[in-house]
């Protein structure tokens, strides 16, 4: 029977599981988060309860860890196996690992990490905050990959003088900033938010929508190009696209 090795869903637990597997010279047929694993007849779930024998962070360069982390944030189905093979080869080839574009795991992980970085970069621009009663700023978004930590770190530097909350709608995760640090909470952990907009919010939103319309040059109209750069899947939360969205649904 095939064995599926389980970790608790966190990045650190994935890395220590991969470390254990490499230390024990086990080639896993699959690795899954215990939160996603569904019991089935084809394979047997295994939880390794070893003392961590090697700390992979001591052996891997910053670049390697960075790529692995971005891959971990992706929604790719077999990302854990790709990470396992990539780390195994990274230990073998050391600083030359990124030259090895003949290895599938290298090409795959670079592509995945690139996609995650790309989506995070786009959302750094597309996120729209609203000022709520009690003066905190609130933004919701949906994304393919789990980029909330990347976004929260970006806005911690940028909106450092205000309380804000970002919500990943699909995953029901929240990032809260309290002027000092970021906290990550799930739906159950958060007290019910008062999501009433501040009274002046409509005025600011109207000004922005006005600017958005005025700044377009009508002689150069190119909706295809607009959609290429700003894919439709993000439009629900981009307030200036509300009218376009309604037109599309008619």
């Amino acid at each position: 029977m095939n064995k599926t090795y389980l970790y608790n869903g966190s990045f650190n637990s994935l890395i220590s599981l991969v470390g254990d597997l490499i230390y024990l010279k086990i080639t896993p047929s699959d690795i899954k988060s215990d939160k996603e694993y569904k019991i089935n007849l084809l394979d047997e779930p295994v939880q390794l309860n070893l003392e961590k024998k090697i700390n992979l962070f001591d052996y891997l360069s910053y670049n390697v860890i960075h790529i692995v982390y971005y891959c971990y944030l992706s929604s790719v189905d077999n990302k854990e196996l790709i990470i396992y093979y990539f780390i195994k080869n990274a230990l073998k080839y050391k600083s030359k690992i990124f030259n090895h574009r003949d290895l599938n795991c290298v090409n795959k992980i670079l592509k995945i990490a690139h996609n995650v970085g790309n989506e995070a970069h786009k959302l750094k621009g597309f996120l729209r905050f609203k000022q709520m009663k009690n003066n905190f700023y609130y933004a919701e978004y949906e994304s393919t990959n789990n980029v909330i930590e990347i976004l929260a770190n970006h806005f911690k530097k940028r909106l450092n003088k205000d309380y804000w909350i970002i919500k990943d709608v699909k995953r029901n995760n929240y990032a809260l900033y309290d002027l000092k640090k970021i906290m990550y909470l799930t739906e159950d952990e958060i007290i019910k938010l008062n999501l009433d907009k501040n009274s002046e919010e409509d005025i600011v939103e109207d000004l922005w929508k006005t600017f958005f319309k005025t700044v377009a040059i009508k002689e150069r109209k190119n909706l295809k190009c607009q959609m290429n750069f700003m894919p439709k899947k993000y439009w629900n939360y981009i307030i200036e696209m509300e009218d376009s969205n309604e037109e599309g649904n008619k």
Binding site: A216, C225, Q226, F229, M230
Partner: peptide, 10 residues
């Protein structure tokens, strides 16, 4: 960072 794209694609 690009924050939006107007209907002319800019």
């Amino acid at each position: 960072i690009c924050h939006s794209f107007s209907s002319d694609g800019r």
